[in-house]
Each structure stands twice: as C-alpha cells, then as structure tokens.
C-alpha cells in the first residue's frame, strides 16, 4: 500500500468513525426522511384513478402525529428518500474529495453525473420541446389524445413546423455512413438565421439602448433648483468612463500618446468594473458552499436544526465539546 492509498484509507476510516459516533450519540439513525401522504382522488367512480402522492415532511410533524394517534397513516417514514439523503451526502463528499486529489470516488461521481445529466437533458428536451412544439404543432390531435390532454382544442396543424423536422433529420444524416455533408445545410441555416437575428437585436437592445442610457446632463439640479455638485460629478465620471473605455477598444491606433493615456484611463475603469464583479462573484460562490454544508450538517448528520425539522434534541457543535 503506497502512501497516498494509505492516506485515503485513513481519511475514510476517520469519516466513518465520526459518522458512526454521531449515530451513537443520537441513538437512532440519522439522515432519515419523512413524507406526508396526500391522497389524490381523480375520479370517484374508478378505483384505478385513485393514488397517493408523497410530499416532503419532517420528523417534527411525524412525531406530533404519532403522539396524537399512534395508528395514523398520514405521516410516514420514507425508506427510499432516506436512502436518497445518504446517497446525496456520499456523492457530495465524493465530489469534494477531488479537492484533495483526483481519486476513484470522484471518478465514480463524475461518470454517474455525465450519464445522468446527458439523459436528463434529453428527457427534458423531449417532453418540454419536442412533444409540445413539434408533435403538438404537426399533429395536435394525436398529442392531445396521448400526452397533453389539456392542449387547446383550437390548436391547428401548423405545417411550417415541418421545416425544423426536416432540418433535424438532415442533421441526423451525419450518423449514416454516406452523405454526411447534408448536415451542413441545417448548420448553415441555423448560423445564418442567428447571425441575422443577433446582429439586429444587439444593435437594437445593447448598442442603441446603452447610448441612450448614457445621455445625461452634466449639470444636475436638485429638487430645489440649485446646482447639485455630487450628482453632476457622478455624470461627469460616467461619460468620461464610457468614452475612455471605448478608446481602449479602438483598433485603428496604437496605444501611444494621448490615445495611449486615454486607453489607460479606460483600463482603470474596467479594472474597477472587474473588481466589482470579482467581489460580488466571491459572495455568490460562498453562499453555494454554505448550502451544501448545511445539507450535510442538517439533513444528513442532524447536527443543526435551523428550520425545526426535528423534535429530537439537537446536538450542537458546542454541546459536543
């Protein structure tokens, strides 16, 4: 066993011991999930049209209900979702283990994720795009009888939608051994259409509207009608900033002399912009880590209980020491 393998085994054992210790302290399984049964009665007459939905619930509700009526069936312990919480927790740890180094656990999580996510998007694409926007347009009656009974009864066949179907088939031609070049047609079509569309919408939405937003008086008066120095200064900075940044993007001249100096000022403005983006982004990223750790500590290890999901005394970190 080489050094790195030994490290992994040690880490694994420490983790397992900690989790086991946590389970001993609480004297019951941690990471349990509870559900609330909601009967659905779609059709009084037909038994086949009755089923039960299970919504997320909490141990608090479960315990309260059991205290009231030990034979209640509304709140239940969910085996499948408990397994789910454990799997989610383990996968979370597997991914985080990459930070120490690449390892088989990460590769395992990665492989699962690639497979699941590719299929996930295919399924979403099929049910939320292909069915309503292709089948639903080409054959509304068929789709209404099959998967979307709520589809408007006035929907009519829109033959225009044969175009994306044909283009799609041309695209898939690439899978055949011969004539793959035909797929260039739909590609050219997409690229052409979107180049045209983006050209015009960018000029309209970003180019013109930003010029428009940039027009503001350099002489600002406040509500009493007197000159407002600070507001005016703000607008002066704004216009200088925009113009100097534009000079930076100028391609026709080398950044020398006065142009070089203005471009430099432009870079300064952009650096402040980047600094702001950096600060805000850091903020967001930390929140993302916080929610993952909260999941581990709250839903899985039951170390904290900020939302009152459990009656059982919560062992806080302070209590442990």
């Amino acid at each position: 066993m080489n050094k790195s393998n030994r490290l992994w085994v040690i880490l694994f054992i420490i983790g397992a011991v900690l989790v086991a210790g946590r389970m001993l302290i609480s004297q019951s399984l941690i990471g349990k999930a509870y559900v609330q049964a909601v009967p659905v009665n779609a059709d009084e007459e037909n038994e086949d049209h009755k089923w039960t939905l299970y919504e997320q619930s909490s141990q608090t509700k479960f315990n309260e209900a059991v205290l009231e009526d030990p034979n209640q069936t509304k709140y239940l312990f969910s085996f499948s979702r408990t397994i789910g919480v454990w799997i989610a927790a383990l996968l979370t740890i597997f991914v985080l283990s990459f930070l120490i180094r690449d390892n088989p656990l990460y590769k395992f999580a990665e492989s699962i994720f690639i497979g699941i996510s590719a299929a996930y998007w295919m399924v979403v694409g099929f049910w939320s795009t292909v069915v309503p926007n292709l089948f639903g347009k080409l054959s509304p009656d068929m789709v209404r009888d099959w998967a979307m009974p709520g589809l408007g009864i006035d929907e009519r066949v829109e033959l225009m939608y044969i175009v994306p179907l044909v283009l799609g088939l041309m695209l898939l031609w690439i899978l055949s051994p011969k004539g793959g070049w035909i797929s260039r047609w739909p590609t050219a079509f997409i690229i052409g259409v979107f180049c045209g569309l983006r050209l015009i919408t960018f000029i309209h939405a970003d180019f013109l509207s930003q010029i428009r937003n940039g027009i503001a008086p350099l002489w600002m008066v406040d509500s009493s009608g007197s000159f407002d120095f600070w507001e005016s200064l703000r607008n002066v900075f704004l216009i200088i900033g925009v113009l100097s940044c534009l000079v930076y993007f100028f391609f026709s001249f080398e950044h020398k002399g006065i142009i070089g100096k203005t471009a430099k000022l432009g870079i300064w403005f952009m650096m402040i912009t980047f600094g702001a983006a950096f600060g805000y982004t850091v903020m967001g990223r930390i929140a993302l880590l916080a929610i993952r750790l909260e999941f581990l500590f709250d839903d899985w290890l039951w170390l904290i209980d900020p939302t009152g999901k459990r009656l059982e005394a919560v062992i806080s970190m302070l209590g442990l020491f």
């Binding site: 940039g214 002489w219 216009i239 026709s252």
Partner: peptide, 23 residues
C-alpha cells in the same frame, strides 16, 4: 471603429444638449 466613433459622437452631442437644457 467607425461604430465606436458614432457612439462617441452621439454621446457627446446628447450629453452637451442635455447639459445645455439643464443649465
């Protein structure tokens, strides 16, 4: 670059006009 010159011109004209209007 012509586009950028256009932006700069319109911006400067617009800002000068707005300033004049305000003053």
């Amino acid at each position: 670059d012509v586009g950028k010159v256009f932006v700069a011109l319109v911006l400067i004209i617009g800002v000068l006009m707005a300033t004049a209007g305000s003053m």
